[in-house]
Design a protein around this nucleic acid. Structure first.
Length: 946
RNA sequence: GCUUCCAUGGCGGAAUUGGUAGACGCGGCAGACUCAAAAUCUGCUUCUAGCAAUAGAGUUCCGGUUCAAGUCCGGAUGGAAGCACCA
């Protein structure tokens, strides 16, 4: 076994001593490559296997790029503000920085152990005043441009603890600590208005090479929806309110309105008799956490507040309710409810017995045989479809048309002066002879069916009413001869209905009868809607928006789910906000010269009575500079502030004149490759895009999108497929143990060989040993004396293939297949007595990005006395890879029966000839007729026989 | 409930994008070296039948398109992640 301990230590020291990976950012003579890792939060636990995986991946690419002649920037730093360090401070009374620095030291040592090619002269820490000076500065710019605001926002407020809590600190409406009640309350908060960037952020997604799933998550999070805003007047009041809807076409079906309990008008327009009830309901809602309010399958609740709104399209008075199914935080906090065509409204209307008005009807268009014939008359008809249940069994009455073999429910026209129920009873009697019928109800929604009726040679446009009923007994009278000759009756099991019924309309009825009642949310044609009647959904939306705009009671509107980013925390270990509240009520933002505003040390890091820990810094809090007096903001910025722009700072980390030199930014951005866990898909990756976009708009960042290509590494699971970590520490793999027992090169090689970078993969200790065996096998080969200056044509093709495959696979991050190709190459070399030095050198270069320590050592063994890091990447000769002869398959009826050797560009006729000569092929086509022979040049021959 | 993604030997995983399924590694079996063991080297290893040539089955299941499907289309089942009353 090669001595990995000595070798790895030797080269680590070499790199450090020679500053091998120092990047001269001002060297613009070479093309640049910026490889970035998501920097870690320096917890006390240290580096884990997942870190090592993602970091190795960028390390491989950056090492290859360096060898390909790029000037590579591959930096590392620490996201060092955060809660654990603060907890430590609270518990020990020590400043959290000491704790943080200790952890950072551990992390740095660990990272160096694994042999990453970071330029440690460019490192940074978000908790370093030299860094957060510029975090504060960017915040200041956001404030000056009106993106950062100080506004009233609803928050989780715990009276007992006297503090604001985040959603995950609230459980079942009570505080996690202490179990005290938590209510929602409006409080003044610092926020960043990110919705302004929504459209730009959506557009930006189209131009970056990111996982589709991550882009989709960001799109969902931005939550763009297009619709209309409609203003409703309130009866007997000069007030009005606005709702947002994506379905303005259904306005004629709006039979009530709902406001969020927190809506500002609620207290004003509630009538006196309802006040108590409303106050009580609001109190109940307030005490619910967000979690509870959104609980699954929750029954709708609400209260009628006694006021009425005027529907602007038909001037109907409709009741106003409050309910917590309407969120204060989305749209306008009020909705128009269309129970016929919205699931939630339907459920609410059913519970509160509010009228349901259908304004959109399914419109079935016949196809094929029953497609509408042009130039034929159209006849209109109202029909009833009777869905009749068997008296004892779970079966439904159907009729089977003998001539056409159609199976359908009983159906027939409704005569004048006849009710829908009467017509259905009559039709069931006529067609089946059953007489003991009870019709229970008519289904909520009518629909239309358009088809050509062949028997009568007319186009039909029918309006369908569906009734549900049952037979009380199987009492039956004789049906007419005519009916008998046309159809048989049949009882169909409920579970077979959908499959057996022939007609689309009847299938729709069956579905509705078998499932629970619900709103009709699909497209169709409008009814009961005055000027929209006959239009489909899209056209009706268009026309309604025009009408609303003409009549000044609404307009087209785009709405976003994305809300303000709450930007203040009542915590200590974060960036202090550079904000002063003046005695006259105005806000003063610190001058540039006053930045950084440095966190003061405290005697007590706890917050008291809902006040941030910084309130304890009495003298710091009081501000008096150049005659400006006031009190400082004592909240700090959230964790994601520093990480929203750190990638800009790496380029120029020591600059104290600006956050980074513009010329350097222009050269180095965007980040070419960014690798990190999928847990940041929306949080960090969204905030970074927002901050960068803000800076771009101000001309301070050269690119619209900061991260050109993004990849998420998968999770590394325990050996049994169980997630490692806090819950199952016994399965946790410590990468440092692997470095100690097998070497860093083995760790890197193994993690890259486990499987695709993005997949979750279980750890295998035997796999680690396999990786180590491979490195040892290489080492022994290079020691063996097989290497010579003689050529070996046996290895020519496979060498060039290997260079190509490894180069391509590293580029596309398919490290597992690249390594497999390297193994194939080494296996081939083992069978030879002579290993040409050119190939031996080329192979070490390919190995270097994955396992750099052993590669440096082998490079030295080959007689070189400088690092391999800047040696040129091996090239391959395509002409040496292309094979002139190839073994291809011969199939008979799609089954491989033989293989033949053909030239790559051999003509079809000759291939066919060869194929037909194979013994086994002859055997399989013997006595059969050859229908045709498919020959694909250089690929396959398939003989089709009968 | 919605969105996105996934399903291949005993295991991790390959498969030129529709053209010989199972590369490479792990594990297993056998042989060589050794007094012996370990290490190493060399074979074999999807399942069933057969000494073998070979035949049959086979990429979660059902169906479709095609000369040809792991790959494309429709449906079902199972799993992962995220969102969740978003009007």
């Amino acid at each position: 076994m090669y001595n990995f301990k000595t070798i790895e230590e030797k080269w680590r020291k070499f790199w450090e001593k020679n500053n091998t990976f120092y990047t001269d950012v001002w060297d613009f003579s070479k093309p640049k490559f910026y490889a970035l890792d998501m920097f870690p939060y320096p917890s006390g636990v240290g580096l884990h296997a997942g870190h090592a995986e993602g970091y190795t991946a960028t390390d491989i690419v950056s090492r290859m790029k360096r060898m390909q002649g790029y000037n590579v920037l591959h930096p590392m730093g620490y996201d060092s503000f955060g809660l654990p360090a603060e907890q430590y401070a609270v518990n020990t009374g020590n400043h959290p920085n000491g704790f943080t620095q200790k952890n950072i030291e551990t992390f740095s040592k660990q990272l160096k152990c694994i042999g990453f090619d970071y330029d440690w002269s460019k490192t940074l820490q978000t908790s370093d005043p030299k860094f957060y000076k510029w975090t504060q500065w960017i915040f200041k710019k956001l404030y000056e441009d009106g993106y950062a605001k100080y506004i009233d926002m609803p928050v989780n407020w715990c009276e007992e603890l006297g503090t604001v809590l985040s959603n995950d600190e609230v459980i079942d409406g009570k505080s996690e600590r202490g179990g005290f009640p938590v209510v929602r309350r409006n409080m003044k908060q610092w926020v960043i208005d990110q919705a302004i960037f929504a459209e730009k952020l959506l557009e930006g997604l189209n131009e970056i090479d990111w996982p589709e799933s991550t882009k989709e998550m960001q799109r969902n999070w931005i939550g763009k929806s297009t619709g209309a805003q409609v203003t409703f007047k309130i009866k007997d009041s000069d007030r009005e309110f606005t709702v947002f809807t994506t379905r303005p076409d259904t306005l004629f079906g709006a039979t009530y309105c709902v406001m969020a309990p927190e809506h500002e008008l609620v207290d004003i327009i509630t009538i006196d008799e309802k006040k108590d009830e409303v106050v009580e309901y609001k109190r109940k809602c307030q005490s619910k956490s967000d979690l509870e309010r959104t609980e699954l399958n929750k029954e709708k609740t609400g209260v009628f507040i006694g006021a009425f709104a005027i529907n602007p399209v038909n001037n109907k008075e409709i009741p106003i309710y409050i309910s917590d199914y309407v969120l204060a935080s989305y749209g306008t906090g009020a909705i128009m409810a269309v129970p016929a065509h919205d699931e939630r409204d339907y459920e609410f209307a059913k519970k509160f017995d509010i009228p349901i008005t259908q304004v959109l009807a399914k419109n079935i268009i016949g196809s094929g045989e029953s497609a509408i014939r042009e130039n034929m008359p159209i006849t209109e008809r109202e029909v009833v479809i009777a869905v009749i249940k068997h008296p004892t069994e779970d079966k439904y009455l159907c009729v089977n048309n003998k001539k056409f073999n159609w199976t359908n429910f009983v159906m027939g026209g409704i005569e004048d002066n006849e009710t829908v129920f009467d017509a259905s009873i009559r039709e069931v009697k006529e067609e089946s002879g059953y007489t003991d019928i009870t019709i229970e109800k008519e289904l909520e929604f009518i629909y239309f069916d358009n088809f050509y009726q062949a028997q009568k040679e007319v186009n039909r446009h029918i309006t369908c009413h569906t009734v549900v009923g049952k037979l009380n007994s199987l009492n039956q009278v004789e049906v007419s001869e005519e009916e008998k000759s046309i159809a048989d009756i049949e009882w169909i099991d409920s579970c077979d209905l959908i499959n057996i019924l022939t007609n689309e309309a009847h299938k729709y009825d069956a579905e509705r009868v078998l499932n629970k009642d619900s709103a009709y949310v699909l497209d169709g044609v409008h009814i009961n809607s005055s000027f929209l009647d006959g239009l489909n959904k899209d056209d009706a939306i268009q026309k309604m928006i025009e009408w609303l705009e003409e009549n000044h009671c609404g307009e087209k509107k785009v709405n976003y789910k994305m809300r303000e980013w709450i930007f203040a925390r009542q915590r200590y270990w974060g960036e202090p906000m550079p904000v002063v509240y003046l005695e006259d009520g105005n806000i003063h933002i610190l001058d540039d010269e006053e930045l950084p505003l440095v966190l003061p040390e405290l005697d007590d890091y706890r917050g008291h009575n809902g006040k941030a820990p910084l309130e304890n810094a009495k003298e710091w809090t009081y501000y008096n500079v150049n005659g400006i007096k006031g009190r400082r903001e004592t909240s700090t910025m959230p964790g994601s502030a520093g990480s929203s722009w750190y990638f800009l700072r790496y380029i120029d980390p020591e600059n104290d004149k600006e956050f980074a030199n513009q010329e350097l930014l222009k050269h180095w951005l965007p980040v070419d490759l960014y690798i990190g866990g999928p847990e940041h898909a929306v949080g960090h990756l969204m905030y970074s895009r927002i901050w960068n976009r803000f800076l771009y708009d101000k001309g301070l960042s050269p690119v619209k999108e900061p991260f050109k290509k993004l990849v998420h590494q998968g999770m590394i699971l325990g050996a049994n497929g169980i997630k490692m970590g806090k819950r199952y520490p016994e399965y946790a793999i410590d990468p440092l143990d692997i470095v100690r027992d097998y070497g860093a090169d083995t760790l890197r090689l193994y993690e890259m060989f486990m499987g695709p970078l993005e997949a979750s993969k279980p750890w295998s200790q035997q796999g680690v040993e396999g990786a180590q065996k491979f490195l040892d096998r290489i080492y022994r080969l290079y020691e063996s004396g097989k290497i010579s200056n003689n050529e070996n044509s046996n290895l020519e093709k496979i060498y060039h293939q290997t260079v190509k495959k490894v180069t391509d696979d590293f580029e596309s991050l398919n490290f597992n297949t690249a390594i497999s190709q390297m193994m194939i190459f080494i296996n081939a070399v083992y069978k030879e007595d002579n290993f040409p030095k050119d190939y031996a050198e080329g192979f070490v270069k390919l190995l270097n990005p994955v396992s750099p320590h052993i590669a440096e050592e082998l490079w030295e063994m080959l007689g070189h006395n400088d690092t391999i890091a800047f040696e040129s990447w091996p090239s391959y000769d395509n002409s040496k890879i292309i094979e002139d002869e190839k073994e291809i398959a011969v199939q008979v009826n799609g089954k491989v029966r033989a293989t033949i050797n053909v030239l790559v560009n051999e003509d079809e006729e000759s291939m066919k000839e060869k194929a037909l000569k194979c013994d086994n092929v002859i055997k399989h086509i013997d006595g059969k007729e050859v229908v045709k022979v498919i020959v694909i040049k250089g690929k396959i021959v398939n003989i089709v026989v009968k």
